[in-house]
Amino acid sequence: MYAGKKNGLVEWLFVAPALIPFLIFVVWPFVSSLYYSMTRWNGFTSPVFIGFDNFGRLFREASFVAALSNTIVFTLAGLLISNVLSLLLALALNRAGRSKAVLRTVFYLPGVVSFVTMAVVWSSIYHYYGPINEILIRLGLESWTREWLGNFDTVMAALIIIMVWSGVGFGVIVFLAGLGSIPADLYEAADLDGAGAFAKFRYVTFPLLMSSVTIVTFLGLTTSLKIFDLPFLMTNGGPGDASTTLAMLIYKQAFSYSNYGYASAGGIVLFVLVGFISLLQIKATRGREVQL
């Protein structure tokens, strides 16, 4: 329908307003970060090319290794707990009848609140004089009380709980939509074949939910790999390095210590991690999806 040189120009003019900011603020920064990651650079003097030294230094440094392992723990725990919990909730809500809409709203509500607000609210919950310790004392479990965020053993769990609280609603919505799209006659056919409740879940519901699993897993992975606000605001990575994440370490190296080259190398590692896991994940789950 449309052809010719003039049309080509018109088409480029249409995409230009979205494309130009994207090239300047997404593509160019990414490409130049690749270069900066191989330099020694404090942001004021010009960068000095040092090859892969920054990367070698990263993996030798204990704080980076700690941040990397914390990030992986965040990601795996968040992924597992959120996926399982939101699937269970969606299965329950799917049969909840009239209360379904209200419950859906309740579970999604934490997702609309900012991490800043969450940090304030949950800091008070985990506070030494906060409700958790208060309830433990009233139950006669005084020996269990502690500074939840100031303790090496509990700080990660405390933060993971908040992440799950804020993220489960999204999973519930996606799984509910997935459940709603499964044709009822498949269950009828399973009934005729004498399938029990578990068999129906295993052979009908679960395979047909794989695309929902893909979505929830993919978004969960990328969000938790990049997690920054929550530990930054609540613990500042502490105690020690116990809750420092990769994103936080990069931020601090850049803006607190002006190690721009080093921070860029960290940024590339984070990108490779996010990119690699995203690819892997898409491949793995796409293969198992059932096409109707």
Partner: peptide, 16 residues
């Protein structure tokens, strides 16, 4: 472009 984390591109953007 969706998968580039803000921490990867923040320094060049800051420089701009």
């Amino acid at each position: 472009g969706q998968i580039v984390p803000i921490q990867t591109s923040m320094l060049p953007i800051y420089k701009i």
